[in-house]
Write a protein that binds this DNA or RNA. Structure first.
Lengths: 205, 205
DNA sequence: CGGGAACCGGAAGGCGTCTTCCACTTCGGC
DNA sequence: GCCGAAGTGGAAGACGCCTTCCGGTTCCCG
């Protein structure tokens, strides 16, 4: 039963890496709606080559953003080490939103749900746990409002996705202002409607 | 020099209205990515009929959402009559975001920029003036933070668009929580990065 | 009630995308 | 250097969408 020949020929490996690099850049600057043909052309390979390494477009997208997700979760775990939980919390929010703003395809990939890609799901669960803990500590310091829920970060991420969908060059500045407003609100203590029952990344679409 | 026969035959007019009604409903529940064929079928007409009334899909979208925009601007102008500017401001924000959340196509139509549709642009300009005035008064009461700019509402609308892009049933609740957070932040007085130089509805995409 | 214009439905054209197929080329162990 | 397997490129298939075309039908005025 299976397993792929993890031993690629050197030229094949070079092509694969070239494709990944090109795809990463193109997805970042133009979003996910780029024809496979265009990616292949810019990578200097034929379409077939692309499809032999990544049997479907989704597979390519998943491969490209796998590491992005990894750095996302690492940001979260790093924040747990910050002696000031509130600062850690702010850093997480700012960093992740900045990543989203800098990469046009990131939001789309994030929201596109991964039918397969189990490792991603696993990472996600661990990140969610870490976030819960971080929020707990931040609340304990009194800086984070008591009725904050982790799902509010999904809210923020989706909102930020809306921002990023607009003009590319204004995205970063706009995203920063959005984050600032949110952090402002996370500290306030006025009334709020009940939290929405969203799962951290499912229940989207 | 032209002009269209504004005198449609009665059956043609009935069909036109049926198409508009169906399109409005379908766009609201499923978004703008609905094939013209589907709209025609659900309206009980052929595709040609649809295209004779609305020469292009954009034309249909514009026609469908023209009135939505109108009620948007009327909300703004009504708010100017509220003796409490801050309350008026809150009502505007809540209402418009609720409209956006209730109608899946609204955001897309709103952001899709209207190359033609001058009347819309005109209304938009008037609405922006009204908003500026409303914001001025709200600031005067001290409830609205001094560094608020009207473009922040575009920020909110785009953010809300991101929310609405997610699951349809959770959209309304999520949107409400988003608005609540924003209103919270609009009252706070912490530091904020400089406002982004977005035009009220252009400069998007 | 009759004729002509307005109107109609569905099939077909055109385009862009994802994906597959196959004859040809290149690598790398022997 | 040789040979088989792995790899390759570009054309072709499949699909879905917007839009146009045409023969038949329906309304409305006189």
């Amino acid at each position: 039963m299976a397993g792929e020949p993890t031993q690629l020929r050197v030229d094949a490996l070079a092509n694969r890496n070239r494709v990944l690099a090109v795809a990463r850049e193109v997805f970042a600057t133009e979003g996910l709606d780029v024809p496979m043909t265009a990616i292949a052309r810019r990578a200097g390979v034929g379409v077939a080559t692309l499809y032999r390494r990544f049997p479907t477009k989704d597979a390519l997208v998943t491969a490209v953003f796998a590491e992005q997700f990894a750095s996302c979760t690492s940001v979260v775990h790093d924040a747990l080490d910050d002696p000031d939980p509130w600062r850690g919390f702010c850093v997480v929010v700012s960093r992740v939103c900045a990543m989203q703003a800098a990469d046009r395809g990131f939001s789309a990939a994030f929201l596109a749900a991964f039918p397969d890609a189990l490792p991603v799901a696993r990472e996600q669960a661990r990140a969610e746990e870490a976030l819960t803990e971080l929020a707990r500590r931040a609340k304990a310091t009194g800086r984070l409002r008591a009725d904050f829920v982790v799902d509010d970060l999904v809210l923020l991420l989706m909102a930020n996705g809306g921002i990023v969908a607009g003009s590319a060059e204004a995205a970063l500045a706009a995203s920063r202002r959005l984050v600032a407003y949110f952090l402002q609100a996370f500290q306030a203590d006025g009334p709020l409607p009940p939290a929405t029952p969203l799962g951290l990344a499912d229940a989207l679409r």
